[in-house]
Amino acid sequence: MTIGHFKNQCTQIKETCRTCGEQIDDLKNHNCSKVEKCIHCGQNHKSSSLKCSVVKSYRIELTRKILQSNNHSPPDTNLMNKNKNVIFNSTNFPHPPPPKSSTLSVNPMMIKLDELINKLSEVKNHLANLEAKHDKFEQFIIKKNNDEIVSNKINDLSNNQMNLKKNIVQHSAYIDRHKNLFCKLLIPMFEDLFSLIALQNLDKRGNPLDADLKCKLNRYLVQMKKETE
């Protein structure tokens, strides 16, 4: 149960759970209680935890030994002697490979990619043309709608003008009818009435009793005759 050796070097027969610290025959069949207990120090953490004081001490001691062995290791004299006897000779090194030919072999995949790029470019141009035509068509529709609106307004004005003409004709007929009524009926009636009033305004000798009344009656008769002309 001590640390510092591999599993195949362990002399313990049973396996140990690193979580609860229980020893069992087969870890695959182990039902762990999930209660952590270190097998090194007995504290409530896993046995492989770096918080364990025993594990910390072991790591410190191991690091110290490694550093000491590296600092006090003697130099390799054989390697140094070999380096001293090395003589540089250009013939010992191979020549660099010849440059590759500048003519590239025709790759079918590259040809297909070029064709695909050209097709995509054609599709892009076609879409741009369609977009331009669509914009023109929208402008045409908008203009046509505006023309229809103007045409509808002109038709409305024409209809209003026709209705106005009809109203004028109706009012003219109405005025003519009243004018005829006034000229043929009312004016003769007023003339007879004024004549009767003028006779009543005379004395036995035929002189007017009220000169102003006679003048007013004559003026009214003249005005009515002018209206009938």
Score class of each variant (00 low, 15 high):
Q9C: 07
K28W: 02
D25C: 00
S47N: 05
K46G: 09
L27F: 06
H95M: 13
P94D: 12
K65S: 04
K14L: 03
I87A: 10
N89S: 10
K82N: 12
N71H: 07
C52F: 04
H95W: 03
S47M: 04
L27W: 04
E36Q: 13
I87H: 11
E15L: 03
K7W: 04
V35G: 04
T19N: 13
K7G: 01
I39G: 02
K46F: 01
G42W: 07
S69F: 03
K51S: 15
L67C: 11
L50T: 10
N92R: 03
K82Q: 13
K51Q: 14
L67T: 13
N89P: 00
P74T: 06
R64V: 03
L67Q: 15
N44K: 14
T91F: 09
G21S: 13
K14T: 00
S73Y: 06
C17N: 02
T16P: 00
T63W: 03
N78G: 09
P75N: 10
D26Y: 06
D26T: 02
P74N: 09
T16Q: 08
S48N: 14
E15Y: 00
Q12N: 12
N8F: 08
G4S: 09
L27G: 04
C10K: 04
Q43F: 07
R18I: 08
H5F: 06
K56Q: 15
T2N: 13
C10W: 08
T19I: 13
E15P: 00
D26C: 02
D25Q: 02
C38G: 05
N78Y: 08
Y58M: 08
V55P: 01
D25T: 02
T91P: 00
H5R: 11
C52M: 05
V55A: 13
F93M: 09
N78S: 12
N92Q: 10
N81T: 09
V86K: 11
K37M: 07
V35R: 11
S69M: 11
N85W: 02
K34D: 09
F6Q: 12
S69H: 05
T11N: 11
N29L: 13
V55D: 09
M1T: 03
G4P: 09
C38I: 05
Y58E: 12
P75H: 08
S57H: 06
N44T: 13
I13K: 14
S33A: 08
N81G: 08
M80E: 14
D76P: 06
R18P: 00
C52R: 05
Q9G: 04
G42L: 09
K65E: 13
H30I: 04
T19A: 05
S47F: 03
N81M: 14
S47Y: 03
D25Y: 00
S48P: 00
N89G: 01
N81Q: 14
V54Y: 05
I24D: 01
K34C: 01
I66E: 15
N29C: 04
N85A: 15
K65P: 00
E36R: 11
R59L: 14
S33Q: 07
N31G: 01
H72M: 11
E22A: 02
Q9Y: 09
N81H: 12
Q23H: 08
P96L: 06
N70C: 06
